[in-house]
Design a protein around this nucleic acid. Structure first.
Lengths: 343, 343
DNA sequence: ATCACGCGCTAAAACGTTTGTTTACAACAA
DNA sequence: TTGTTGTAAACAAACGTTTTAGCGCGTGAT
């Protein structure tokens, strides 16, 4: 009644030994139907919940897995979390989420916590400037880890990501095919490989088509920053008629910026997003974008981490899913001579 | 080198006892500077991370607190998480998040996991139809808990919420003052007290001003559903000239629906949102809304749960923060005779 | 020389489980 | 009787920490 009920409490009340109660709870060993019933009943009466710490310490097992990322407040990531969490729970695991906000020191503490509590596995979007030491930590503690989106340059982990270069190449081709010749890249901040890969796809097509020097513009990945960045970009480069974006959130921000300037995305300036979040479809105008399915990505992550847990010695694998072009209304043929944006 | 380093590993390598290493790691006891240095060094060399399970089992302490909610993919909630997490980490705690998607059974499993791992505390947005048993569980295990937004009718927990009734009353008054006489309430689904309170504020003002029967329209709290719900609402009630919404996400969806119909929020139909998420300000047109500060709300939650952890016998307290009306562009005087929506 | 005391460290007992081994008991065969 | 077999339940040793009590030793006071 007072204090947490433990195995001993249940055992005493049911008139059996602790070991018996444990076996009943876990469904192991040979237990007569009669005592099984009795134990189960008293456990329920006492609101008994097994102490996972003791259990996992003794058994060396743990059903809790961790997810560490850089930005929980991002609809794309939220969808990924949903997908991963759904699949994991269907397999009897539990997913708990930690948000480091791209702060390497914070990430370090969080990963130490995951290690310290002996999580069964880790799904990890490494923060910017993740030091080698953090990877080493994971390695020495043999925590089954799968990185997502971002690689780490130091250690070999399983990885699930997106075919970034191909995707932005496709996006850029789409714009070039429509007749655009001054195409810029907008979004993300330096030092992240995801962004570098995307910029590479964009640059490659520019070079292949002889479309002049790349214009790359930074912006944090939130809508408000996207609005500001787009405004500045157009001011600095009024000749630009089309934009490839690092993500839908920024792309929608950019589209919003156009609207605020009295312009229309797809008419005055073409925009291609990346991710295909829910908002992309219902934005005004609806956003042309490179679609990946974040929910499915989450499920894939879950499957990979489970396999790694089950067989720690498997060779490390990388899965890169493609993105497909979804043409909506923010892309169209250029309608004005270059440089005459406000003419 | 092989296998996880433990206290014993460090102790052996440093040539001291386990107890000494423990004291060095925790900064307790009297330890000479010399051995302190030596122990710290070998611990670092070995990438030693203390086993939180053993530590918390022995000491009865735990620095990890849990957050269980119904929808992680909601910008309002995401901001709350940020606020709570920031404050908690500054106090040496860690916040791990579990999303039950408003499924009571799933919530039950997650809360059992929190109890089982002896989390230090719990910040909880109870799922719809949370059964009494779940509250009982929390009570018998004495897990320091603060509920957020939604109450539970069964047990007494600390609570942090919003002055919902006053807020929607204020919103409705604002619309009535502008001259609207047919005002509807849009958003949320039944059985959640937050929504009931908000509807009550709306209804109360309607009654006080003699403004005819309430029109209450359901909608899940995502943008896409908001678009659909608004469209249906206008079809069923073309006389409506103003809407009070259950949240900004739905409100922005509603505004989007108007745009798609060739109408303008604030001109053809007035809309008041709730929450003041980042998108409210940059929406087109910018959204009039009842503003609460989710980040601050998160910090408040963190402070409450910490106090409860420190003093489990404090009387239970409820904090209700006010929402303030922020007038932007989606509200204005009615411009058309009732019932002539598409005239 | 004896005593008391502070210092730096260690031994050992918990914390609540799981699990391999052992015991108790009964039934049955030789 | 004794021995064998089988079943149901209990014992006891871990898991990796924290923490209390106490040990040996040098130092200064008596």
């Amino acid at each position: 009644m007072v204090g947490k009920p433990k195995l001993e409490t249940v055992a005493k009340q049911a008139g059996v030994s602790v070991a018996t109660v444990s076996q009943v709870m876990r469904g192991t060993g040979r237990i007569s139907e009669q005592t099984r019933k009795k134990v189960l009943q008293t456990a329920k009466n006492l609101n008994y919940v097994p102490d996972g710490r003791a259990a996992s310490m003794r058994s060396g097992q743990n059903r809790e897995i961790g997810l560490a990322l850089h930005q929980i407040a991002n609809p794309f990531n939220a969808e990924v979390i949903s997908g991963a969490s759904d699949l994991l729970e269907s397999e009897g695991y539990l997913l708990s989420v930690l948000d480091a906000r791209d702060d390497a020191a914070r990430q370090r503490r969080q990963i130490e916590a995951f290690i310290g509590s002996s999580r069964a596995g880790l799904i990890w979007v490494p923060a910017q400037d993740t030091p080698e030491a953090t990877c080493e930590l994971l390695k020495t503690h043999k925590l089954p880890t799968v990185t997502f989106l971002r690689h780490t340059s130091f250690a070999e982990f399983d990885h699930v990501g997106i075919q970034n270069t191909d995707a932005t190449a496709r996006a850029t081709e789409h714009l070039a095919d429509l007749g655009h010749s001054r195409i810029a890249f907008l979004g993300g901040t330096a030092r992240v490989d995801v962004r570098n890969e995307r910029i590479e796809g964009y640059t490659r097509v520019l070079a292949a088509r002889g479309l002049g020097p790349p214009i790359v513009w930074e912006s944090p990945d939130d809508k408000l920053s996207g609005v500001a960045a787009m405004t500045n970009l157009l001011e600095a480069h009024p000749e630009v008629t089309a934009i490839v974006c690092n993500g839908d959130v920024v792309a929608i921000g950019a589209s919003l910026a156009l609207t605020k300037l009295g312009l229309t995305a797809g008419l005055d300036v073409s925009i291609v997003g990346f991710d295909d979040i829910q908002d992309a479809e219902i934005a005004i105008p609806p956003l042309t974008t490179m679609a990946v399915s974040p929910y499915e990505l989450g499920r894939k992550l879950a499957r990979v981490v489970i396999e790694r847990i089950k067989d720690p010695d498997m060779p490390v694998a990388t899965t890169l899913v493609p993105a497909r072009l979804v043409v909506r209304n923010t892309t169209g043929a250029p309608t004005r001579p270059q440089g005459a944006l406000f003419g």
